[in-house]
Design a binder for these strands. Structure first.
Lengths: 255, 255
DNA sequence: TTCTGTCCCTTGTCCGACAAAGTTAGAGCT
DNA sequence: AGCTCTAACTTTGTCGGACAAGGGACAGAA
């Protein structure tokens, strides 16, 4: 007969983890504000009373989590995690889980429609100006698939931003990052792709300007259906997302 | 006149970052499969030709990203990033960006409705069994707010799972993690909260069983509106999400 | 067979060291 | 005085070596 449990397991986290947790707590609690400097490694060695190697391992954890960064002079300071950086982790996870383009398409349909609804309802003049600027740049590069795909990605980020809902902004980002590389392929492969894409963007901006929700939803759906039709000329929707994402994700990390 | 560019900028990432990138590439490319052992630190020292401290810093980066784990005996192996773990990073970011409950509510309305639609359309018998099991456990703890809140969180994870859309599963998770702590408060504060919550769950399961999309959407909306009404008795929707998340997030990390 | 002691290996941590790059302070010049 | 340029000083990234704690394997004892 097994012994009755008498003791609870003790929490024995390694020291580097405790260091990371302690600093994280201070940041999330707000005692260290984004932008505030964390001391030098030597300072932290003194404060925590552990070796510099241990401190450095803890710092790596926080750095990867986006909670602290090193500025140009490599000094440490707290910072607000960037959605894009975090989303690239998620995109990577989606690739590893071998999600299909069908899942990506379906989820994006939901998320992008929600974004445009928010944008139509709450988009500001400033949002419209950014979108118009993006549109102008898109029109200028309509013949260059790579540039156009980049503009398209930015356009939808701006739509999400115009929704004024940061949760939505964050939620759509992982799927969007996986879309991005395919857009270039599609615009390259389908002759009508570029102009249709730009036209859809124009209609979306109009919808926001006139606060015309129906039009916004309609054109978002069409825009995505265009993507889908274009994609199906190249591959099956049930293929899983693959390596194509890699180059883009790693390049984005460097920035 | 400036010289014509003759050389490309050299990649001057620190060694620990290169180590992390190299291992990440192998995992994402699929040459290292989830579950495969990475060598010991000493192996990696030999392979990369750098110091063990450097290897260890690289490992911390990958560990935080969820790409590798240490098993019970602390040996390294590749693994599939868990959505929950990644989502907790995102939740933390949302807290730091001081998103409001209104944003959380609006985004969740979209995401949960999409989840139930998928679940109604594609939910399997196994999904239903898991949901039914969850419902039974919920009914048993209807008087215990903490346990009930936990069941509620799990219920909605199961709904998302039943949608068979992993992108959606992932996208809803960050917002859901921030909801969780408030559910307990609400069920505690509102007498009718517990029974109403369980009733809604029952209706949702029925909707999936009968593939009744209208009912699924209807009860999801009601369920969320209940949350909202309950929350507004406690605080304003425009308050930003705060520390309340911390205890839960850190506890989840340990698992 | 099951328990226990021992050995080897791995990890977590520490110490000390050094080159490169950035920072600061002061000397020197206008 | 104000500016520039150089020389210390700091800080980071990396290295080598070291050691204790703890898991796994294996042999021997009950």
């Amino acid at each position: 007969m097994p012994l009755a449990p008498l003791f609870r397991p003790i929490d024995v986290a390694p020291a580097y983890q405790k260091v990371a947790d302690a600093i994280e707590r201070e940041i999330v609690n707000g005692r260290i504000k984004p932008g505030d400097p964390i001391g030098t490694e030597h300072d932290l060695v003194r404060q925590f009373g552990v070796n510099r190697s241990t401190i450095r391992e803890g710092i790596r954890v926080l750095e990867e989590g986006g909670l602290i960064r090193r500025d140009s002079s490599r000094r440490l300071h707290a910072c607000l995690p960037r959605y894009r950086q975090l989303a690239s982790r998620l995109s990577r996870a989606l690739v590893l889980h071998e999600v299909t383009f069908r899942e990506l398409y379906e989820a994006s349909m939901t998320l992008e429609v929600a974004s445009i609804e928010g944008a139509v309802e709450r988009g500001t003049g400033e949002n419209l100006a950014e979108l118009a600027d993006n549109l102008a740049r898109s029109e200028a590069v309509v013949g260059d698939p790579a540039m156009l795909a980049e503009c398209d990605a930015e356009f939808h980020v701006l739509i999400a931003k115009a929704s004024q809902n940061r949760v939505l902004q964050l939620a759509r980002e992982p799927a969007a990052q996986l879309f991005y590389p395919t857009t270039e392929m599609i615009v390259t492969g389908v002759a009508e792709g570029g102009p249709r894409l730009v036209a859809a963007h124009r209609h979306l901006i109009d919808a926001i300007r006139h606060r015309d929700r129906e039009a916004g939803v309609l054109w978002t759906r069409r825009h995505l259906q265009d993507w889908r039709r274009g994609f199906e000329k190249i591959a099956s929707l049930d293929r899983s997302v693959e390596h194509m994402y890699m180059e883009h994700a790693q390049a984005a990390r460097r920035r």
